[in-house]
């Protein structure tokens, strides 16, 4: 008996060690870039290739520089406006289209759905050229609208919302129909409140996607007034050499809104992520 007990203890211990080691390694791998971002933002230029986490001579000079440089606020504002509008728009359009595809039977429904789904398989890099030509012909280059238009609706979000609306029982909708609500009211005041976890998760995904978008905003704008934050930050690297400490400072400041968005919506996103089975 005693032997068996000891034996089992010995068997479990290594499994635990491996599990914790892997988790720790994963955690470190994820946290390190953020640690270095913060660390670098407090370093003088001569120290940035020194991999020490705590700088020898910490400074807030970089922050003062970035914040006193008026361009930062402009880029931050651009990013905020663009990300917010795109998020609201994508969440609304994705859910109304997802709802329609989920709850109504009409001719061509499957074709529309498959068409939307298939766009998920085309990488952004491939779309950038057609988007650019389109924006050019419509005269949308160098405008907020030019940056935003590809993202006002997303195939992924439409798919996600369609799946979530499957969980809303039809009885709920029919009861409202009998009570005299029109289809738009049913969508807005019955179906939408029932999928708030999915809406929050989608809002976070879309916001982050737009906040960090780089290639498209870079291509569609060449007016520094219209740069988004990621595009603007790279100008710290073209002017003289790569000024890593300034880029990292800007990046550190840029994470603040994403943190706020996440903290506001996190109690929903955790439920939402669990429900979709998508690992955040």
């Amino acid at each position: 008996m005693t032997n068996a007990f000891d034996y089992s203890r010995k068997r479990i211990a290594p499994a635990k060690v491996i599990r914790w080691t892997l988790l720790a390694l994963g955690g470190i791998a994820m946290v390190m870039p953020i640690v270095f971002m913060l660390s670098t933002s407090f370093k003088w230029p001569h120290e940035i290739y020194n991999l020490k986490i705590i700088p020898d001579e910490p400074t807030i000079e970089n922050y003062t520089y970035v914040l006193e440089d008026g361009r930062f606020y402009q880029w931050f504002w651009n990013s905020l406006v663009i990300s917010t509008i795109t998020t609201i728009s994508a969440v609304l359009f994705d859910s109304i289209v997802g709802y329609t595809l989920c709850k109504f039977r009409f001719r061509g429904r499957m074709i529309v759905f498959v068409a939307i789904l298939s766009t998920l398989m085309i990488p952004t890099e491939m779309l950038v050229i057609p988007w650019y030509l389109m924006a050019k012909d419509f005269g949308w280059l160098n405008s907020y609208w030019g940056i935003m238009f590809p993202g006002i609706m997303t195939a992924f979000g439409t798919f996600l919302m369609k799946q979530f609306f499957e969980s809303v029982p039809n009885d709920f909708l029919e009861a409202a129909r009998i009570d005299g609500l029109n289809e738009f009211q049913i969508w807005w005041s019955v179906a939408m409140p029932l999928v708030t976890p999915a809406l929050s998760a989608l809002a976070i995904f879309v916001f982050l996607g737009n906040w960090t978008a780089f290639i498209w905003p870079l291509i569609v704008t060449n007016d520094p007034e219209l740069y988004t934050l990621p595009v603007g930050l790279t100008t710290f690297s073209v002017e003289q050499s790569v000024e890593w400490e300034l880029i990292m400072t800007g990046a550190a400041l840029a994470t603040i809104p994403t943190l706020i968005v996440f903290l506001v919506f996190q109690r929903y996103i955790i439920r939402g992520v669990v429900m979709t089975g998508i690992k955040g």
Partner: peptide, 29 residues
């Protein structure tokens, strides 16, 4: 349309809305 028939229906799984209070649910009609 359903609303023009002046009927009311009670469903098997109740179809009362989880995001509304009892008052809101009853008043929904």
């Amino acid at each position: 349309a359903p609303k023009e028939r002046n009927i009311a229906m009670v469903f098997q799984n109740y179809a009362i809305y989880p995001h509304m209070t009892v008052r809101k649910n009853i008043g929904f009609g």
